[in-house]
């Protein structure tokens, strides 16, 4: 009888509390009379304290349910930290918080321009920054409109436009016809991570009323008033 009961292989499951009640009682009865099992069990029970350091969620695998918005937001923060903070000019500091976000975005653009001929780290005086999210389409855009001699340079970061959409970056003057500053088709990457764009428009600085992303079939994805 004792050879059947002295079955150390049940001690693991016993220590983990995984035996059914009848078997647990039987093991308990045996252990209470068996010093060898008691010694081994004492060590196993100690182990439970270590196991309890690990939460049960540790054994879930894969990405979270519900799409990759969380990943996109995380990558955005990674990129925001990666890019060096642009030197801010006095004229911009006084502007509201929304503009600060746009300046942070400017970092991503600044990096790209480091290889371009013009000095990169400062936004030109008179640069206007703004952003908007369209509640219906879910698309968002941050733009910086930089003044040039009689025309404007437009930096934009467009996010939330579904892959496959054929889009135009439209710059609207206060008077006159809208101009297309560029066009593209949204890739999977662009849909997932957002897309930095730049374009130009022959509209005098200060005369830009809004910047839009329109689809080629005429839907406005997002509109940023300036």
């Amino acid at each position: 009888m004792s050879s059947v009961e002295h079955d150390r292989s049940v001690l693991g499951a016993y220590a983990l509390g995984a035996l059914d009640p009848a078997e647990e009682r039987a093991v308990h009865a045996h252990v209470s009379t068996c010093q060898e099992c008691q010694r081994e069990l004492a060590e196993f029970v100690d182990l439970r304290a270590a196991l309890d350091q690990v939460p049960p969620e540790a054994f879930l695998d894969g990405p979270p349910d519900g799409g990759d918005l969380l990943l996109r937001n995380t990558l955005r923060r990674v990129r925001a930290e990666e890019t060096p903070a642009p030197r801010r000019r006095g004229g911009l500091i006084a502007v509201a918080a929304a503009v600060v976000a746009a300046v942070a975005l400017g970092g991503g653009i600044v990096i790209g321009r480091a290889t371009a001929p013009e000095p990169a780290t400062a936004l030109p005086a008179g640069t206007i920054s703004a952003e908007a999210t369209d509640q219906t389409t879910g698309a968002s855009m941050r733009v910086q409109v930089e003044p040039r001699a009689g025309w404007v340079w437009v930096n934009a970061f467009v996010d939330g436009v579904p892959a496959g959409e054929k889009c135009e970056l439209v710059v609207v003057p206060r008077e006159g016809d809208p101009l297309v500053a560029g066009s593209w088709v949204v890739s999977d990457k662009g849909a997932a991570e957002g897309l930095p764009l730049e374009g130009t428009a022959l509209i005098p600085p200060g005369q830009v009323k809004e910047v839009r992303v329109d689809t080629l079939d005429g839907r406005t994805m997002v509109r940023v008033p300036l």
Binding site: T74, V78, G112, G182, E193, G194, L195, E198, G199
Partner: peptide, 26 residues
């Protein structure tokens, strides 16, 4: 209207060092 939408710029934005690490951890 002048067009200067650059693929170079878009690629650069995807190549933040360590971004692949974040993706794979996620």
């Amino acid at each position: 209207a002048s067009v200067a939408i650059t693929g170079r710029r878009a690629r650069r934005a995807r190549q933040v060092p360590g971004e692949e690490l974040v993706r794979s951890l996620y």
